[in-house]
Design a binder for these strands. Structure first.
Lengths: 259, 259
DNA sequence: ACTCATAACTCGTTAGGACGAGTGACGTCA
DNA sequence: TGACGTCACTCGTCCTAACGAGTTATGAGT
């Protein structure tokens, strides 16, 4: 029967006590926490209060709760998959996507036609409602079981001008890059990284645990004249994967980047 | 009185109905949702059920709830701050950190001495319990009000060998890089990006809304012989900031990256 | 017209109760 | 011995009830 007094609401005091016990190591990772009934008597509170405290800890990603079994301290293990966001070429000029070979396609790719949104239009330097080729892939890393959602978007307007893209806009990235390079294009890439909570369909598709954000990457392939050719998006659970970049120190002065 | 029947629990059906209404535009961003009492009569359920549904939508980051006012549709605005993770040099060799000038120090830096953990030791290619200089900064972007937590870690063992670091390990990054370069070091950088839910102290320090993950960056500065010199960590709320990288296509074959 | 107390709304917290559903151990029966 | 059903334990869902606390509009009083 621990005494609690500190700050604010009862359930927050209970949550703080449990959190402290976890972070101090009293409850080891993967170990079973006391049941709701035990916590009720231990802190002298009602079940809603205990459940409220547990809900707070779940939202922090500190514990996992399994129906019929109990609450477990989540092991804050490192991500098991490091995704190198780099593009390499073998001496004979062939593109090699780091990690590109480990990804399998868990389903048949889904190809479709769509239009730019405000967000995708901005990245492709287009207005809204511009026509696009779209291709969605569900990728799977058999080694770790990690899943990722991949999307390729190519504007009609670009495919009209670039034969390599009109031929088959639904190729995989490495094939597209190679084709473009063979046609004489000098490619550059820029990538933005964001994180957010998953929508329900992303949560089920990626098989994410509670309180797990997703990393959302947007990679734009540019031509030598800085015209955007391809937009690729990758969504992946942040519990299993991390991104790795090599940072280059170029000789040009930095430009302003706020927008 | 909308009818609901679909899947699983009652509160999930209610949550799905509200979510659908939001995503379909029936409830515009920043608009006020019906109150709990109204939702109770509208769906014919009790208050706990309504609150459970609302809690689910909060955890998804879809709505914000303000005590005494109501629930509001969160505007899924783009991040207002794009952080260029690039290192540039002016023609005379001076380092320029993109965005480096916009950051102010919201507090006096906190310097201390600590030891490697399993995670930081791995990045610095050291064992555990190796002595480190530490410096924590709370950064502030006055333009957007965005806050970020920055940490610099330098091993004693490195400072012993590299005079530029022993002199003052608590300088800001740009000054450290310049000093090292003047001393003849050829620097390279690698960076890993992860996302996770914030701990309570991070949540308050960074002033984060509900269901907002943080982006966690770890940048390692390497010497020309690939020895790690400096580890920098940056933690920032994913609601306000995104990261931008330029991806280089180098000529070397890719190495395996799984670990 | 202005000030300020009150009322009426909002969500937040806590309690108590009841039943459903997943899990695993135990014991019975074949 | 083995299969299987029961039971006790876990968390999940749903309800009623009451009060606290923040916000805003209303209206009375000055």
């Amino acid at each position: 029967m621990s005494e609690i007094q500190r700050p604010g609401a009862l359930y927050q005091q209970v949550a703080a006590a449990i959190r402290e016990a976890i972070l101090s190591g009293e409850f080891a990772p993967d170990s079973l926490l006391p049941s709701e009934a035990q916590l009720m008597t231990r802190y002298g509170v009602s079940r809603p209060t205990v459940r409220n405290a547990i809900a707070a800890l779940r939202a922090e990603g500190l514990i996992d709760v399994r129906h019929g079994k109990g609450s477990f301290v989540r092991s804050d293990g490192q991500p098991s998959l490091t995704i190198e966001r780099r593009i390499s070429r073998t001496p004979d000029g062939k593109f090699v996507m780091p990690n590109g070979d480990v990804w399998q396609e868990a389903e048949e790719p889904h190809t479709y036609r769509t239009h730019t949104t405000k967000a995708t239009g901005r990245l492709l330097q287009l207005g809204e409602e511009e026509a696009l080729f779209g291709c969605d892939r569900l990728l799977l890393d058999p080694g770790t079981g990690t899943r990722a959602m991949h999307r390729t978007l190519i504007p009609f307007a670009v495919a009209d001008v670039v034969p390599a893209l009109a031929e088959d806009p639904y190729k995989r990235s490495g094939a597209l890059y190679r084709q473009l390079t063979e046609d004489g294009h000098k490619l550059t890439w820029s990538e933005t990284v964001r994180a957010r909570m998953p929508l329900p369909d992303e949560r089920t598709t990626l098989q994410l645990p509670d309180a797990t954000p997703i990393l959302h990457l947007a990679r734009v392939t540019h031509d030598s004249d800085d015209r955007p050719l391809i937009l690729e998006e990758l969504r992946i659970g942040a519990d299993r994967a991390e991104l790795a970049y090599r940072i280059s120190a170029d000789k040009q002065p930095a430009r302003g980047t706020r927008h």
